[in-house]
């Protein structure tokens, strides 16, 4: 009985989100009280739907790039040839995480110009750490007797990696990707300060014109996207973990 309640809530949220993005004017009466001096209650300098899609695209590109680099790096440093690069790689991705995205934007704009590119760079650097660390954890904690069995069966190093170590690391890797995606979804909004087309545009427009309705709708759309994507990825993780007979880790 209780199992379907969270599912139903998420479904309602999804329906609301789609309705808001496709027909924002339906919600005008709700947001009107938040505006002053007859300012518009719904963002009117572009379509919310296309902004949301561009926002998602930016996050997707940055995450895929971070994934490729972080996973490749984690594989490299767990092989015997790359073991000595482990401390160096750790420092690099840690710097990526500690360097504020705003500072990355400020530094990237003179190099690559305004628009989507500096945002992609910032999100990419910011997203590396969780994926790298989790992939590393997954690859280094494969149960010893399973790796031993794979060696005993006559698998080469690459076969062990592709057929045993990586598949067994998938649930932990997915957890890293999930963290990275959620961080990027929120961080992408500041990309609009350097003219990237994201939902941050709505928030910034609201801040500039002192329009609380704009700030709220921009923030709520990002939040709803983050919650839904987080849950979807968690479900995927549990599925992968259950197939392997592992108990899903608490999110």
């Amino acid at each position: 009985m209780k199992a379907w309640i969270p599912l139903l809530l998420r479904f309602c949220l999804l329906v609301l989100l789609i309705a808001f993005l496709t027909n924002p004017l339906w919600f005008e009466p709700l947001l009107k009280p938040l505006t002053q001096n007859g300012a518009p209650a719904i963002y009117n300098q572009g379509s919310l739907l296309s902004l949301a899609l561009l926002h998602l695209r930016t996050v997707a590109i940055a995450t895929v790039a971070a994934m490729v680099v972080a996973v490749a790096l984690a594989i490299l440093v767990t092989r015997p040839v790359g073991a000595e690069f482990l401390p160096l790689s750790r420092s690099l991705v840690n710097i990526g995480q500690t360097f504020p995205p705003v500072a990355v934007l400020a530094l990237a704009v003179p190099a690559v110009g305004f628009g989507e590119k500096p945002t992609l760079i910032a999100l990419f650097l910011y997203g590396l750490l969780p994926i790298f660390e989790n992939t590393l954890t997954g690859l280094t904690t494969t149960p010893a007797n399973i790796v031993e069995a794979a060696r005993g069966a006559g698998m080469t190093g690459w076969q062990r990696l592709l057929k045993v170590e990586l598949p067994l690391s998938v649930p932990v890797m997915l957890a890293g990707i999930r963290l990275s995606v959620v961080i990027s979804l929120a961080t992408a909004t500041i990309g609009s300060t350097v003219a990237a087309k994201t939902l941050g545009e709505v928030i910034i427009a609201g801040l500039q014109s002192n329009n609380l309705a704009f700030v709220l709708q921009g923030g709520l759309i990002v939040a709803a996207l983050a919650v839904l994507i987080y849950d979807a990825l968690s479900a995927l993780e549990r599925m992968a973990a259950r197939r392997m007979g592992q108990v899903a880790q608490a999110a």
Binding site: N145, I146, E148, A149, A150, R151, G152, A153, G154, M155, T156, K163, V164, P167, L168, R243, M244, G245, Q246
Partner: peptide, 20 residues
Amino acid sequence: GHELRRSIGYAIQGNGLFPH
């Protein structure tokens, strides 16, 4: 080594089956 091991059966304690 890996070719040698393909020609020799190997079973270990706790079986080491691939869970996936």
